[in-house]
């Protein structure tokens, strides 16, 4: 069994891919925490604890849930908004994967080619990727682990991400709701959110409205 742990960085300019260090992906019904395979239920609780303990918990919804590809995408978007409200967490979109020039506005968006800019700018300490295509999520997760001290989580629609500190697999509306339920359960048990006060940035075609 691998001794390597997928922990927050900064690990190295070129952090090793977790797979090359012996980390394997969970089977259905399981998840991984820092590379250790655990039952999914345990990961839901751990993810909820991480979110509540964070100063700047953030959700990064990707193109698969931001764009209305089908009804399921819309339902996932609704579930993500509920999760953000429950924590409470910032929502910062990854609307597409273009390397943006001359620069992105790191306060309102994240880009897989330089995700560290958004993490640094907002001082994000815990984040979760939802609805990001696997290749781009892997790229972003490695860059974040390499250059920041952010705890990364992934709600993956496929087999999970070994490069995240915590990863679920087979993401669905139900799983996002289970994560929300885990947050609410901890809160009902007296665990308080440590999140700094913030106002969710809202935008329309003219720019920021909040």
């Amino acid at each position: 069994m691998s001794q390597y742990k997928v922990q927050p960085g900064p690990e190295a300019f070129l952090s090793p891919s977790a797979a090359s260090m012996g980390i394997v992906l969970p089977d259905p019904g399981e998840a991984h925490i820092e590379g250790t395979i655990v039952p999914e239920e345990e990961a839901f609780e751990e993810a909820a604890r991480k979110f509540l303990a964070a100063k700047v918990p953030t959700i990064f919804p990707g193109p698969l849930v931001l764009w209305h590809w089908n009804e399921n995408a819309a339902k996932q978007a609704t579930a993500i908004r509920k999760l953000a409200n429950a924590i409470p967490a910032r929502l910062i979109p990854m609307a597409d994967y273009r390397p943006k020039y001359p620069k992105i506005d790191p306060e309102v968006e994240i880009n897989p080619n330089h995700p560290n800019l958004t993490i640094w700018h907002n001082k994000i300490d815990v984040c979760i990727f939802v609805g990001v295509h696997c290749h781009q999520a892997n790229l972003a997760l490695k860059i974040i682990r390499g250059g920041t001290n952010c705890y990364t989580m992934a709600m993956c629609a496929q087999a999970g991400h070994e490069d995240a500190c915590l990863s679920f697999r087979d993401a669905s509306v139900e799983k996002i709701e289970r994560l929300t339920a885990a947050v609410l359960k901890l809160k009902s048990e007296g665990v308080e959110s440590q999140a700094e006060e913030f106002t969710q940035i809202k935008l329309n075609r003219q720019g920021r409205i909040a």
Binding site: P61, V65, L66, W67, H68, W69, A73, A74, Q76, A77, T78, I80, R81, L91, I92, P93, A95, D96, D105, V108, E109, Q200, I201, K202, L203, N204, R205, Q206, G207, I209
Partner: peptide, 22 residues
């Protein structure tokens, strides 16, 4: 008709994407 933004997350999308749809 797929080039639409999910309603629940529309207000976090940067203006350039909202322009693209509209």
């Amino acid at each position: 008709d797929k080039i639409k933004i999910c309603e629940d997350l529309a207000d976090i999308m940067p203006p350039e994407y909202q322009d693209l749809v509209e």
